[in-house]
């Protein structure tokens, strides 16, 4: 049980990280990371929608006919986004206005439909919920990292806290988003590659030592 949760968590956060490894849901990633706080808000919104949609779709997986499953998923997701939109409009109007068009665009975020299709439609409710939480957390983690980098370089602040007196406004603009995103993916892939290679070498060494001991 614990092993399975660990596997889902590790997949969602690192090995199948939706933003850096699978490169899904790129539009909000590029548009919402000019401020770290906006990135955090977007991440939490996606976690909310993804977790609930995973739970509902997984609970209904035996009822929804296979031929009309995509429209059914879209209706469920659109309903959740409408709820989120009404909530943000009333309770957090600042986030609502800074998210702008990207709030309704959560409906067509490939991560949510992708997880519904690849995971929630085949697995139990609890697993789907965990998958939703951790995949959403992986998305939020990536967004917040990019938000911190871009806000630091583009506005000289982190989470709205001014710490630098000069700014390079290039990084607040869409082209800065493209370049930071590209380099972040490259760095993430490089680090994971290094970790996996060192793990493989360690394993090979252990195996080698075992073989030598066996011979002696």
């Amino acid at each position: 049980m614990k092993n399975r949760i660990g596997k889902i968590a590790l997949n969602g956060l690192i090995f199948d990280n939706p933003t850096f490894m699978l490169v899904l849901g790129t539009c909000p990633t590029l548009a919402m990371t000019s401020k770290a706080l906006d990135a955090f808000g977007m991440g939490v919104s996606v976690i909310f929608v993804l977790t609930l949609s995973n739970i509902i779709i997984s609970a209904l997986r035996k009822i929804i006919p296979n031929t009309v499953r995509i429209p059914a998923y879209i209706v469920i997701i659109a309903t959740l986004v409408t709820i989120l939109k009404l909530f943000l409009n009333k309770m957090i109007p600042d986030l609502y206005s800074s998210m702008g068009t990207f709030l309704p665009l959560i409906v067509v975020n490939c991560i949510i439909l992708g997880r519904a299709e690849a995971f929630a439609s085949k697995n139990k409710v609890v697993d789907s919920m965990l998958d939703g939480i951790f995949t959403g957390a992986g998305f939020m983690f990536a967004l917040v990292i990019m938000g911190i980098i871009r806000e630091f370089l583009g506005a000289g602040s982190i989470f709205g806290l001014q710490i630098m007196s000069f700014k390079i406004s290039f990084f607040s603009m869409p082209m800065g988003a493209f370049i930071v995103y590209g380099l972040c993916i490259a760095l993430f892939v490089y680090i994971i590659d290094c970790v996996q290679r060192s793990r493989r070498i360690k394993k090979a060494r252990l195996l080698h030592a075992d073989v030598l001991e066996g011979k002696e």
Binding site: M173, P174, F178, I179, Y181, G182, A186, V189
Partner: peptide, 23 residues
Amino acid sequence: LPKALQGFPITMVTAAFIAMAFY
């Protein structure tokens, strides 16, 4: 290219330069 830059990363960086031109 280095292996980490192949595929999406280099495409993103290229898109950044085209975006600059569109500015």
